[in-house]
Design a protein around this nucleic acid. Structure first.
Lengths: 198, 198
DNA sequence: CCCTTTTCACCTAGGTGGTAAGAT
DNA sequence: ATCTTACCACCTAGGTGAAAAGGG
């Protein structure tokens, strides 16, 4: 009923333990969450959002080229861990027509600005998280339709460790290779694009 | 109850007869429509949209430094002339909290792509148009609340002639002076920004 | 010592009017 | 002759990881 659109890319990162940069003002995820959904009632209204929760009870550190547990997770603060898709609320027909993309979701650390809630998901560095897709049927006034179950979908390949700087160089290289905004750091960039000119 | 936010700027253009460029793929307006609204029911839901209709029954041409009527307006095609604000539907509280800005509304000519309806308002070149703000109270399912009047607000200073290239050089200069995206065409740009360096 | 923050060059993405070519 | 289109240099706006500086 729900498919992770860019699953192959997520798996490529997941094999090396995905890391996501967090900053005070918020940083986009890469890869970002994107889903295809089917089986909704085309005429009913739904809110669709992503929330992010701890994937395990540990604090982690990167040591000797590996992520190793290191004490208990801090569970203070907790902040805002849900991001409503900007198209919400909308009809089942709308949600099924095209990819449901969370490309503008930003991850922030809890010290920073909480004011722009709704744009940000606040997480703690060096903790491991599991994103989750939530589909809630709502009445026309936006209140949850209690007669319908709230559905959640979890894709283990989207787990990530929040970091303030990349730890695993394999992850750094995958980001550079696949994120269009990091094109300037690709090794062959100069050779391909300016090698013939100068 | 409704105020045009950037009224002084609109008036500056209006004194010279505002022109707006239209293209096949759509061009933003400058100045753009932006409003402050008050007096709504904070808990009721509203759709807010702009529509654009002919301001007069004439076809116009720019001759001898002036706009002069030139035959009857073509009223074929008509296309999509309404642009729903992307926040619609939303509560009165939401609409009153901040400026209601239509900065992403695009004007297109009718030969071009109609497929991306909702993003575009289709108008005909060398015709004069009057934008209008519309506020419609809706039930929670999005249907218009027929027991409440549909309110429309018209600001004559936002009238414009649609063109495919600027006719009046005064208008061109005002666009260059005030639109940040046209900064590169300002006469003093080099002097101010690079004069001390090289 | 380890982690976080700031700043930077470099990119993507897309909004400007000018200009020359195209269309009618 | 007049209007439209396509392309361009130049800008705004903002997303990258690197590197240096800051903090506990």
């Amino acid at each position: 009923q729900v498919y992770l659109c860019n699953r192959a890319l997520w798996l490529t990162f997941h094999r090396h333990q995905t890391e996501m940069i967090i900053t005070k003002q918020g940083r986009r995820m890469f890869p970002f969450l994107s889903f295809n959904i089917s089986g909704l009632d085309p005429t009913a209204n739904y809110n669709i959002y992503v929330d992010v929760s701890l994937a395990d009870p540990n604090h982690w550190r990167f040591q000797g080229g590996q992520w190793v547990p290191c004490g208990k997770a801090d569970s203070n603060g907790e902040g805002n861990k849900a991001y409503m898709h900007p198209d919400s609320p909308n009809t089942g027909a709308h949600w099924m027509r095209q990819e449901i993309s969370f490309g503008k979701l930003k991850l922030a650390n809890n010290k920073g600005a909480l004011e722009s809630a709704g744009q940000m998901v606040v997480v703690q560095s060096l903790h491991r998280y599991q994103p989750r897709l939530n589909v809630v049927e709502v009445h026309e006034d936006g209140a949850e339709n209690a007669s319908q179950p709230r559905q959640s979908f979890t894709f283990p390949e989207t787990q990530f460790v929040a970091v303030t700087a990349y730890q695993n160089t394999d992850i750094t290289q995958l980001k550079i290779d696949h994120n269009p905004f990091a094109k300037g750091f690709r090794d062959n960039y100069d050779k391909i694009y300016t090698g013939y000119d100068s």
